[in-house]
Design a protein around this nucleic acid. Sequence first.
DNA 1: ATGGGTGGTTCCCTCGAGGTAACTATAGGC
DNA 2: GCCTATAGTTACCTCGAGGGAACCACCCAT
Lengths: 133, 133
Amino acid sequence: MDAYISFADRLRALQQHSSFENCPVRQVMQGIFGKWSTLLLLALSERPYRFGELRRLVPDISQRMLTQTLRDLERDGHVYRKVYATKPPSVEYGLTALGTSMLTPLNDLVVWAGDNFAAVESARKRFDAGAEA
Amino acid sequence: MDAYISFADRLRALQQHSSFENCPVRQVMQGIFGKWSTLLLLALSERPYRFGELRRLVPDISQRMLTQTLRDLERDGHVYRKVYATKPPSVEYGLTALGTSMLTPLNDLVVWAGDNFAAVESARKRFDAGAEA
DNA sequence: ATGGGTGGTTCCCTCGAGGTAACTATAGGC
DNA sequence: GCCTATAGTTACCTCGAGGGAACCACCCAT
């Protein structure tokens, strides 16, 4: 049976691995929360995409960062990279099993952020207004 | 009824707000994924803590960053700050209702990271080994 | 009067994420 | 000959998150 594990217990478990400084959980999390990582993971959750498709889908990202972010995601095992030997070689990116397994918790958090960003924004305004008073 | 909304639909909804560049969802997410933010949120999920207690609980964090991270979390409405007029004034930090509502999805993701960091690490080793070959 | 415990602030520095632009090679279309 | 598309790489720069150390004001205990 999976016993319920409290947040605090998780915290203590985290600490035992090493210092908090280079906690393995954080290393995994930082791979997911680069500026573009979450966005690309959500995009690839729909279906595999080719490099150029992703560029057009997310026009704000630079070509350099798209390559680099995809490489990082590939390195961490979240994304696979498949090269097709067509005349101008084309490349397909998609989620691995590991990446797919992350999708549910990741999406839940994105949903939460989507549901609550208005509350966060108003909290910021309140805070900033009170600061100058 | 809450209809199921696909990841791809979420993506498109995100895009409509503005560019991906300064997406409100990302602004909320970035407030949660500073180097120490998640750790402090999980700590405060157990019970409210005082400043000095948090310092001792997370010895790796510098005093400067502890103050700043708590301020940022307070500004975003995740954390409250309560000053007690004791002789050396003491300060208590705790989760707000908003912060508490985030706890479940946040913790799910941390749990996922805890369950899968070994897979990520071995993926990295495989990738790095293949790169030099 | 000295040291320690409250909870900070201020200054300065480093390091790396991310951005910009130019360049690569190949092939097809006009 | 020139522009397009494929998918990158390389060099250079900026900016801000985070770190380190010192300082502040108050009070207590020894």
